[in-house]
Nucleic acid binder design. Sequence first.
RNA 1: UGGGGGAUGGGGUAACGGUAGCCCGAUUGGCUCUGGACCAAUUAGUGAAGGUUCGAAUCCUUCUCCCCCAGCCA
Length: 558
Amino acid sequence: MTELEPLRNTFIQEIIDADREAGRHGGRVHTRFPPEPNGYLHIGHARAICVDFGLAMLNGGLCNLRFDDTNPSKEGTEYVEAIKEDVRWLGFDWGDREYYASDYFEYLYQCAIKLIKKGKAYVCDLSPEEIREYRGTLTEPGRESPYRNRSVEENLDLFQRMRAGEFPDGSRTLRAKIDMASPNLNMRDPVIYRIQRVRHHRTGDEWCIYPMYDFAHPLSDAIEGITHSLCSLEFEDHRPLYEWFLRELEIEDPPQQIEFARLEITHVVTSKRVLRRLVEEGHVSGWDDPRMPTLAGLRRRGYTPKSIRTFVARAGVSKTNATIDIALLEHCVREDLNATAPRVMAVLNPLRVVITNYPEDLVEEFPVENNPEDPAAGHRMVPFSRVIYIERDDFMEDPPKNYFRLAPGREVRLKGAYYIKCEEVVKDPETGEIVELRCTYDPESRGGTTPDGRKVRGTLHWVSAAHAVEAEVRLYDHLFKTADPLEGGDIIANLNPDSLRVLTGCLLEPSVRQAKVGDRFQFLRHGYFCVDRDSTPERLVFNRTVSLKDTWAKLQKA
RNA sequence: UGGGGGAUGGGGUAACGGUAGCCCGAUUGGCUCUGGACCAAUUAGUGAAGGUUCGAAUCCUUCUCCCCCAGCCA
């Protein structure tokens, strides 16, 4: 995965280098990717995955997959399966190191007991509202809980009875005894265990008390021998707490938490809450709608894992909150697909062309290269006959001077076949719509060049009417029309009404007939497309992954 | 007006006291049987003000702006 190489150029790598030089952690590098199984992974997670796994890989270390499943009310097995599939798809392997915070519940419980015995934790009877009141504010210190100075014995007894299920949900908590006057709110006696009678997806009804993230995370890292615990910026404030637990529990060779910025992209939203809303309100067809920034959506859209890794590496990793232009992501898929996707001719909006001087029943086959970027890809034979279809946009009755395509009296090249000249435009007498072009071909131009070497500026793609395969093509655009989906405060108002255009009756060259779900192609002069899972042999369905850069479109706009 | 972070061309990201570089984008030109790709060039930057120094994006001082934190979420 050489595309991950730029990750060496990050402040995290510098820390790793310094650690190794100092001989810390015995020179080991061991990271973890710790998703909470409460939703689908999205492009934002891709950075975390690439950084966690990538940095381990780049440093000859290991990365664990650990499900942070300490809140059963939101989590479920369906998510763990989806997450595993997505991480694997992105190209990473955690070997047999698939862990769950819930595997450590007993150990965590014992750690809590230890804290109580040290006088560093206590059972608190305050209600959630009271805890909030006692916590103070950003500018005022908190007040100590009246239960703060219970004896070790009483705390031990109460905590054991919490576990035994003697108290109702929410009635008591176990809290770390730190400092209610700390300017860091996280240090104001944070709750480390709550009572919650919710069935856990792995431990079932074994527990009715569950540890909080701040408590479970450092200890899970410690158990797994993690050296560098990488997380996002909002946890910077939690680092003192992370370290407090490790210190109080006398963990040897403790892991260190290092924070970096989340990945934000223009025209994209990565909030789980918002993504869920889009799905639930039907603005998209599901979590894997090709417009969704989920890994499942990107996969269905046709993005390659490699292009996403490249994107993450090129975007870089820092502590600056930054929004990367979606153009970089699109550039990365184009770059990958340009090198690998077989070319195919597809007429999305067909215009019938009759070549009047071409024999009525003749069918010729022309070789067309599968990928000019890759000679090894070879070529295929494409059938040609008297009636063909070209793109409606490739003809203009009254063209501007910089239009190189077909127009009355003009000559163009049909890719790999012949030069044709437009002789007549046939219109529907009622509507005036152009229904057919009547052209002549130059037999001398067979294969795409003429002996006289005359230049033709335009080369069009085409399909033979008699051999064409019909397909549905779904054209996707950014889900949000504004670079910042939150602009103006109303996400829904910023939805791009043209984010999906479904084209039916598209005509493709016959070589695509065998295409299987997930196969990727470049439709010549259009963009990159892949076969959608809705596709059947009778009814092919393609998704546009990304368009080709279109300088003509740009010229038109100007 | 508590605490924790952050500011380098249009968007990202390097440079760790010594030529501000790279990627994306944009623009221009070249090439082309994809108006793609490719090639070349251009564009444009150290948040502000002081200070230290032969020399400052980098060190010091002050200021400005932005992000995060008051879940029994992670």
